[in-house]
Design a protein around this nucleic acid. Structure first.
Lengths: 211, 211
DNA sequence: GAAGTTACTAAGCGCTTGCTTAGAATGTGT
DNA sequence: ACACATTCTAAGCAAGCGCTTAGTAACTTC
């Protein structure tokens, strides 16, 4: 957690994320290069040489900063999933009115999947390349994300403000809408993330039968 | 096209798809093995030895029946996309009422993406591994599928039976719902393809604001 | 400016990859 | 049963893979 105050390896005190050692900066560059490569060609379609070269380093330098290629995927996947979980939980808690909260959840979820489509592609489509232990950990986070959305839909139904024959299926559909944006969204098109998010939030309210 | 009458290599006449030469059967087995492997581990995560072994053959046998590993992906992708295009066009043409046609489109689209989730995963998520020429050909089919659905939504709006602020976004959402089923659906769960399709068809009508 | 720590690279190891070659087994028509 | 086409395999090649080792360059500290 680079955002917290901690002692660096050389006895230097890292006060916040703005202050970075050279190693931290290089680690970050490698992660960024890995995200881009994994998103474009997939985990198995990417070589460690690709990643190192994109970060302006020799192939061996990757192993100075990371244990393995799989660890890169795990770090990307974990922080990506944690970001989405945080976002969903904050949006759910942002209003006592289920309709308002759902609009916010879908809006933010979609904006992230469009704006960070490179990361979200890796997050959603490269799970199979994770080690069994890492996959189990990631699945746990995914479960919490799905649960948060399902509970919100169920709360709306219970409160009588949503009307749907199967809240579980409605929640699955809402998730699908957002996740799939990461697949089809392209930068530089005429559709900006905010616009897509606004339209999708409206459709989300229709899906759950908001009154 | 094994469904059409044609002369086999040995001078034997292949009358229909039921009658197959040994080579045709082996070709099909290799394709089936490739679909399963590509769906589970991705194109680059699959070796030609994996595919050959799953088909009960030596690694070299693959190259008796197919030019390359990429050709296997292309054949799977092409027939999968053609199947979906046919299905969508038939569903669109099945009724003059946009709402009835849309219900049928989404229903059939979802059933296929659940029942054939192995194939549809390869179809939707392994595009980047295709050669540039093959990718261009596949993109053309995808464009026709998207176009057919978008035109149906627009026809409904024009006819006054659908009501949505942006038909193009609604069409994108409908596509997403179906495509993403291929990602999350698992065999042996408590959700059967027909049930998912029924719920999703209802949600589709809500998305487009059907009266 | 020497000593020590940190950040990096050149070279390459053992293995796997997609694919080929040369030939053996299998099936088929007469 | 013989000739011939078809279907398949054993063996292996060149290239590329993830990752390691041994050592050099670049900073920091005093």
């Amino acid at each position: 957690m680079p955002a917290e105050a901690q002692e660096g390896k050389g006895g230097r005190v890292v006060t916040d994320s703005a202050e970075q050692s050279r190693a931290d900066a290089t680690r970050a560059r490698l992660l960024e290069a890995a995200v881009t490569a994994f998103a474009e060609r997939g985990f198995h379609g990417t070589t460690t040489r690709d990643i190192a070269a994109a970060a302006g380093l020799s192939p061996a330098a990757l192993y100075v900063h990371h244990k393995s290629k799989e660890e890169l995927l795990y770090l990307i996947s974990r922080s990506g999933h944690e970001h989405v979980l945080r976002l969903v939980r904050e949006a759910v808690a942002s209003s006592a009115d289920p309709a308002t909260a759902l609009r916010r959840v879908v809006h933010d979820f979609v904006v992230t999947h469009a704006r960070d489509h490179t990361t979200t592609r890796v997050v959603n489509y490269e799970l199979a390349a994770l080690s069994p232990a890492h996959l189990a950990e990631i699945r746990e986070i995914r479960h919490r994300i799905e649960q948060a959305i399902r509970q919100l839909v169920e709360a709306g139904v219970t409160a009588g403000v949503f009307e749907t024959p199967d809240p579980r299926m409605a929640a699955a559909a809402l998730l699908s809408l957002g996740v799939d944006v990461g697949r089809w969204y392209r930068d530089g098109g005429d559709l900006v993330p905010e616009y897509i998010a606004a339209r999708y939030a409206e459709m989300a309210l229709r899906i759950v039968g908001a009154r």
